[in-house]
Design a protein around this nucleic acid. Structure first.
Lengths: 166, 166
DNA sequence: ACTATTCATGACCTATCGGTCTTGAATGCC
DNA sequence: GGCATTCAAGACCGATAGGTCATGAATAGT
C-alpha cells in the first residue's frame, strides 16, 4: 500500500551484504543465497547500480562486488537514488501531477512534513545498519592478501567459517 | 518514489467530486472533465469501487454517481481500502516479505511509527476536504426534486451556475 | 413503443516491472 | 595457451497497471 519498489528493496538488501573492496569481494551467487533474491535479477540490479559509483566490481575467479566507501557512509537514500534516479518533481501522496506548493492537494502540507521525516529516516539509516539483517551474521567477503591478489589459503578458512555458521 | 498508486489517487480525486445522492447525481463525464482523469478509465475505477458500498449509481438520463454517506464521513483511508483492498500483511518499507515484528528489517521500527502517522493522516482527511481541489469550486450535482425524480427546470440553473464559475 | 442518455461489462492494447537465459569479456590458475 | 570462474550486456518473457473501445442494460422523456 505504500513502500519502495521491490527492486529498490533488493538493492538495499544486496548492498548490505558488501564491504569495502580492501576487505574482499562478494560474488552475486553468495548475495543471492543469503538474501533470497533471484540471482539473475540480482546481477541485473547490481550492474545497473554499478554506474552510480556506489560499488566497484571485479570479474573472474575470486571476483565479485564491493562497496566504494565504508558501509557506515552509505545511506539508504544513496541506494534509493542510485536505483530509481533522482526525483525530478516533488512527490504528491495522491500521485497527482497538478499538485504543487502553489496548487496544493488536500494532503499536500501534511504529506510534505511526513515526507521530510521519512527522508530523514532514509538519510540516517546506513548500509552498516542493514548488514546484520541482510547477511544473517555470516561473513561473505572473499579474503585477499595485502598486495591485492586473492590468497587461496584463506579461502579455505572462509569456507570453514561458512560451515560453522550455517 | 513513494506515493499511492495513480489509480488510488484518481479514485480519491473522483469521489471528491461527489455528494450524497439526495443532493443529486454526477455523471462520469463531468468528473472526468474537472479532474482530467481519462473518462473510460474513470468508469472502470468507479465501477470497481461500486462494490465497496461507498458510492451508489444510477443509470440512464440524469443518472450518475453519488456518495452513500456524507463526504465529511468518508476518509481517504476508506477510499484507499476500497480500491486496493485491505492490506493482508504489515507493510515493510523495503518491500521485504521476510520482515516482521519478530524478524525486523533495519528500518522496521522507525517505519512502523511513521506509517502510523501516515495512516492517521489518511483517517483524518475526509472527502469533504478534497472537494474544493477536485471540483475547482464548481457544483457538479444534477439537481432533483424532493420526490426523487429529476427536475428539468433546475438543470438550466445548474448549467448557468457552471458558466458563471467557468 | 421508441429514442437518447448513462452506467455495466468485458475484450483488448501498451508500457513497465520483475525475472530468466544466452553470449561475450575479463580475471586467475595451471 | 588453455581452462574455469565471474561479471557485462542484451534479448526475451509473463504478469500487472494504466488505458481504450465496443456492446449491452437501465432510466427518462416523447
Amino acid at each position: 500500500m505504500l513502500s519502495l519498489s521491490q527492486t529498490t528493496g533488493y538493492a538495499i538488501l544486496a548492498l548490505g551484504c558488501l564491504q569495502e573492496s580492501k576487505c574482499g569481494w562478494v560474488k552475486s551467487a553468495e548475495i543471492a543465497r543469503y538474501t533470497g533474491i533471484p540471482v539473475a535479477y540480482l546481477s541485473k540490479i547490481l550492474h545497473q547500480i554499478g554506474h552510480s559509483g556506489l560499488i566497484t566490481t571485479r570479474r573472474g575467479t575470486y571476483g565479485g562486488f564491493a562497496l566504494s566507501r565504508p558501509a557506515s557512509r552509505i545511506s539508504l537514500y544513496d541506494v534509493i537514488v542510485a536505483v530509481e534516479g533522482p526525483q525530478e518533481r516533488p512527490s504528491c501522496l495522491l500521485g497527482l501531477s497538478e499538485c504543487s506548493d502553489e496548487n496544493p492537494c488536500p494532503a499536500h502540507t501534511l504529506w510534505k512534513t511526513e515526507r521530510g521525516r521519512i527522508e530523514q529516516l532514509w538519510q540516517n539509516t546506513k548500509l552498516s545498519d542493514v548488514a546484520e539483517f541482510a547477511r544473517g551474521g555470516v561473513c561473505l567477503t572473499e579474503a585477499r592478501c595485502a598486495c591485492g591478489r586473492s590468497m587461496r589459503s584463506r579461502i579455505g578458512v572462509h569456507r570453514q567459517h561458512e560451515k560453522e555458521t550455517a
